[in-house]
Structures are given as C-alpha cells and as structure tokens.
Nucleic acid binder design. Structure first.
Length: 209
DNA sequence: CGTTCGATGCACT
DNA sequence: GTGCATCGAACGT
C-alpha cells in the first residue's frame, strides 16, 4: 500500500475534458488504509459515500469536503479491502492556461495572477485546476478521461521521496503515511525539506515505519 | 514569521 | 444538528 503511494510519485494525473487536457506530475500523496485507520473514510464501515473504497483497485474515489473542495483518491486494494491514496499536489504539466482560467473562475482575480507552482498545490486546488468533481467519482484510472500514466521519458528522473505524518486530520496523526518530493515548490503544507521555507519538524527522508 | 477563522454542502448519527 | 482528508484572508507577534 505505502509502496503504491511511493510509486504514484512521479507519475502524471491527466484529465481530458471538452475544454482541453490538463495534467501534472504527482508530487505529494497520502495513504488512507482500512477501517482500522481512524482517518480513512472507511473507518465507520461501508456507507453510500465510501462505497468506491470497497470496490476494485484503480478506481477514482472523489468526494466533496468542507462543502467546497473536491478531493480525489486512487483506490489501491482489492474488493472489500478499503484503502486509497489521496492525491494532494501536482506539478502542472499540460493545460496550464486552462488551469489558470479554472482557478480564476468565481473569484474576482485575473487568470494570469495565478502562479504555475500554486495551481495544483493542495488537494482542493488540484481538483479545481483539473475540473475534477463528483462526475469523475468511480472512473477507471486506467481509462481515457481521468487517468494516471507514466511521465514522459524526459521527466523520468529519479525523484527523492520524503515521508511525514498526514496533513489536516485530527485522528490517525501518528502514521507517517504522507509521501512527497522534498524541495518541489508545488508541494503543499510545510516542509523544511522542500527548500522554500515551508517546514515541518516531523519530516524525514527514510521510509515509513 | 505565526495562528485564527469564515465560507460552504453533504453524509452521517 | 454535527463534523469534516481545505483554502486563503486577516489578523497578532
């Protein structure tokens, strides 16, 4: 499972829409594993909302939280083993101008005022830039609309990976189940290891316990 | 630098 | 009615 999270780092998440194609390199993820993980949506058992977690792996689990942000996960385990990787940040790759227009929508701001590195920094931001909402819930991530694929050869350098505790939760804080590319300016949250002054004491470069 | 707080909608008890 | 796997603006050091 944590291996899947690690493998997703450095792949691309792509969304094809009538408006165009947007994609980015996955630089930050978190694992949510099973009903025994209090922060996982499967913790209360099977419900209508979390049903995709109990389905086959390779499926997108999308939901709305805080009433205003859609979050996208990749289901990772076999049927009846609820677990998923939350995609938290991307380095924008294709469709950057389209991302800017989507981010500006509804705000009074100009699309041009959005910096590239911030377009997909944070799970709520990346779904807005890629136009991911409940319509994509349950899609096959190996399909043609919303999918994960290997990065182009020109980008397949080895990515350094750091692990930390998960962000934005109140339970299950002990697990070191957040993986990110240290130093990458598109990573959300704080990290002394990402080289831009956003730091957190718990970060470390070794593998999780 | 840091922390607090409002916006906002839906699933769940 | 309560509580979020958030974001960013508005404050206080």
């Amino acid at each position: 499972m944590l291996e899947v999270a690690r493998e997703l780092i450095g792949k691309t998440l792509v969304h094809e829409t009538p408006a165009g194609r947007t994609s980015g390199l996955i630089v930050e993820v978190e694992a949510y594993i099973g009903e025994s993980d209090p922060a996982c949506h499967a913790a209360p058992g099977r419900t209508k909302r979390n049903a995709p977690l109990y389905g086959p792996p390779g499926i997108a689990y999308v939901y709305l939280n805080y009433g205003m942000h859609y979050l996208v996960n990749a289901v990772t385990e076999p049927i009846d083993s609820p677990a998923a990787v939350l995609i938290r940040a991307l380095e924008p790759f294709e469709g950057i101008e389209l991302m800017r227009r989507r981010r500006a929508r509804g705000t009074g701001k100009r699309a041009a005022s959005f910096e590239r590195n911030g377009l997909c920094r944070g799970p709520g931001n990346l779904t807005k830039s890629l136009a991911i909402d409940l319509a994509q819930n349950g899609l096959d991530l190996t399909g043609r609309e919303l999918f994960i694929e290997d990065a182009p050869a020109s980008m397949t350098e080895a990515f350094p990976i750091a692990w930390s505790t998960r962000i934005g939760i109140n339970v299950g804080k002990e697990q070191v189940w957040r993986a990110f590319v240290p130093g990458n300016p598109c990573v959300s949250g704080k990290s002394s290891l990402n080289g831009n002054g956003r730091s957190a004491a718990g970060d470390h470069l070794t593998s999780p316990a």
